[in-house]
């Protein structure tokens, strides 16, 4: 029995639009361990949301999984494991619908728009329970109240019959979490769940997610652009830029010994609360137009350490110790001995 829950190998998702092909996800490799938190970090437009939507086969219809695999190690009972390649499943098929919302569930960014205004909170949570379990309506309702209580909603018996507009942003996000937890998922995907919230609410939601993860023993895939959130919650981190994972490793390594110039620049550009006020380091330029991707390493036009060959050679994965990998030409031709010196 392996500890790996999901392995993504060379996943490519392209969007075929009228103006051309957008390579939104362009060869992504990821591993999600059971019960651990993986943070996928990147700026808007880097493809992080698209990649995660592929796990549930809910990529927008103009987007196609062109190649690659998403291997899901499904634990059928305590000593048997089957593997499913989610990338091969029919988005409307029976098998993915069994997984979606039950074994893998998702929380979206905007709690204001991801709940339906037409149904009560209880109805929306119960829908998922009734669909995936054999519970009766009455039992589902009880479970629903219990879940709402667990995610810290006050007076759950009353709020279960309220419409979402009666809840504040933080409360709605809690209701979303309750919905996602309703079928005891093995993986919870959270797409920027705290971006629309205040710092105080964000801190509470992050605490809640940490506690729930411990309790449910589920894996968490956390998509964010906020490195502060990553520092709070991640076990491992994957940094994404223009459809590629440029660096991945455990959270301490990424923050304290980053190798890729993009990761380094991202970390430098967050304002630190310090006594001296220095000018912020920025990343020059901006994320390129998706229709006109730079050749070679996608980051080279903005990279301060770019070399002439960066514009033509696509960097391959360099492995440092213990799962720390990066895609950068700076490290490609260095021997193991020099690695040791570098780190």
């Amino acid at each position: 029995m392996s500890d790996t829950l999901i392995e993504v190998n060379d996943l490519k998702i392209h969007f075929f639009t009228d103006e051309g092909v957008v390579r939104a996800v362009d060869g992504v490799d990821l591993t999600i361990e059971r019960g651990k938190t993986l943070c996928l970090v990147g700026e808007s437009g880097c493809g992080k949301s698209v990649a995660c939507r592929a796990f549930l086969q809910i990529v927008h219809s103009i987007g196609k999984i062109v190649s690659g695999e998403i291997i899901y190690h499904r634990r059928v009972d305590n000593n048997f494991e089957e593997t499913i390649d989610i990338a091969q499943l029919n988005p409307k098929g029976r098998q993915i619908r069994e997984i979606r919302g039950k074994e893998i569930s998702m929380i979206f960014q905007e709690p204001m728009t991801s709940l339906s205004p037409m149904y009560t909170v209880g109805n929306q949570i119960m829908e998922n329970i009734l669909l995936h379990t054999n519970l009766s309506k009455e039992e589902a309702r009880q479970l629903c109240v219990q879940l709402l209580d667990q995610v810290g909603i006050p007076q759950p018996h009353r709020l279960v019959d309220e419409y979402p507009f009666r809840l504040s942003g933080g409360m709605r996000q809690r209701a979303m979490i309750a919905m996602a937890l309703s079928c005891n998922p093995t993986l919870l995907i959270a797409d920027e769940p705290t971006t629309a919230l205040d710092v105080t609410t964000q801190a509470n939601i992050l605490d809640l997610m940490r506690n729930i993860q411990k309790e449910y023993q589920m894996a968490l895939l956390f998509i964010t652009h906020d490195l502060g959130v990553v520092a709070e919650i991640a076990d491992t981190v994957a940094v994404m830029y223009l459809g590629k994972i440029v660096e991945s490793g455990d959270v301490d390594t990424i923050f304290n010994n980053p190798k890729h110039p993009y990761t380094q620049a991202l970390l430098r550009s967050i304002p630190k609360i310090s006594r001296t006020r220095e000018k912020l380091d920025t990343i020059q330029g901006m994320v390129p137009n998706p229709y006109r991707r730079p050749g070679g390493c996608p980051f080279h036009p903005r990279c301060t350490q770019a070399m002439p060959e960066c514009s033509t050679m696509v960097p391959s994965v360099t492995r440092f110790s213990d799962g720390h990998t990066t895609r950068c030409l700076l490290y490609e031709n260095i021997t193991t001995k020099q690695f040791a010196e570098l780190s």
Binding site: V199, T200, Q202, A203, D226, L227, G228, V229, V230, A231, E232, A234, V251, D252, F255, N256, I270, K272, I273
Partner: peptide, 15 residues
């Protein structure tokens, strides 16, 4: 005090 304490940390070592 509560606002300050809710600011996300900048390094996982401060967890």
């Amino acid at each position: 005090e509560a606002l300050l304490s809710a600011v996300p940390i900048t390094n996982p070592r401060d967890r």
